[in-house]
Computed example of a mutant assay.
Amino acid sequence: MKTYADVMFTPAVRAQQDRDGTGESYARRYASMDRSELGPDEADFLGSRTSIYMASVSETGWPYVQHRGGPAGFLKVLDSQSLGFADYRGNRQYISKGNLLNDNRVSLFAMDYTRKARLKLQGYATFQDAADAPDLVAQLATQGQGRVERVVTIQIETFDWNCPQFITPRFDAGEIAQLVAPEMSRLETRIAELEAENAALKGA
């Protein structure tokens, strides 16, 4: 697996970094990194996501970003260098699928707004019809999501963790429920105590 700098820092990008004085620091940073495979931290992070963004490029050169989501665990790390997820019936525009017929390179963005973390990944994506990949369907299907139409596998070329700057924390319904659960439990206990006290006073 290549370093993020090897893939994403083109001569034009490096020229801009050198112009702004960041070229040497980035060179040192990525030279010291081991990005040979997805490790436990990446696997745990990706496996807990409920959504990702996947960018592809059309044959006319236009970038396209598509959202994919589901319950935590819908995105699966298949091995140390590949990911996969099941694709269900959507709006049937097939933009990503069509783009990948011309150029199968994709860029993924996985966000954790709660903890202000983000993981960027570059790789090569493949769409397969469900009928042609029954073993992958069984591995990637998420219960309760409906009938799998396709499966998507992504061979990771490189990845990088991004800094948390400017990420605004956001919480989904499940996370909010978990955060307020202790306070709700305390309030419910107190309400029950007050109702019992009220009943006792009325009886007196």
Rank of each mutant, 00 (worst) to 15 (best):
Y4D: 05
Q17W: 06
D18K: 07
G23C: 10
G23N: 12
E24Y: 13
Y26M: 15
R29F: 11
S32M: 12
E37I: 00
E37Q: 12
L38H: 13
G39K: 07
D44E: 14
R49W: 08
S51T: 11
S51E: 14
E59R: 15
P63M: 10
Q66I: 07
H67F: 08
G73W: 10
V77C: 06
L78C: 07
D79L: 08
S80V: 07
Q81V: 10
L83P: 06
F85H: 09
A86S: 07
R89S: 10
N91W: 05
Q93L: 04
I95V: 15
K97N: 13
N99E: 02
N99I: 05
D103T: 00
V106N: 12
A110H: 05
Y113D: 06
R118G: 05
R118W: 01
A125P: 01
F127H: 07
D129H: 08
A138V: 07
Q139Y: 01
Q139H: 08
L140A: 03
G144H: 01
G146R: 02
R147N: 08
R150K: 13
T158I: 03
T158L: 04
W161D: 03
I167E: 12
P169G: 04
A173D: 10
G174N: 15
Q178A: 15
L179H: 04
A181Q: 13
P182V: 04
M184W: 13
R186L: 13
T189E: 11
R190T: 05
R190V: 05
R190D: 14
N198T: 09
A199F: 02
A204P: 09
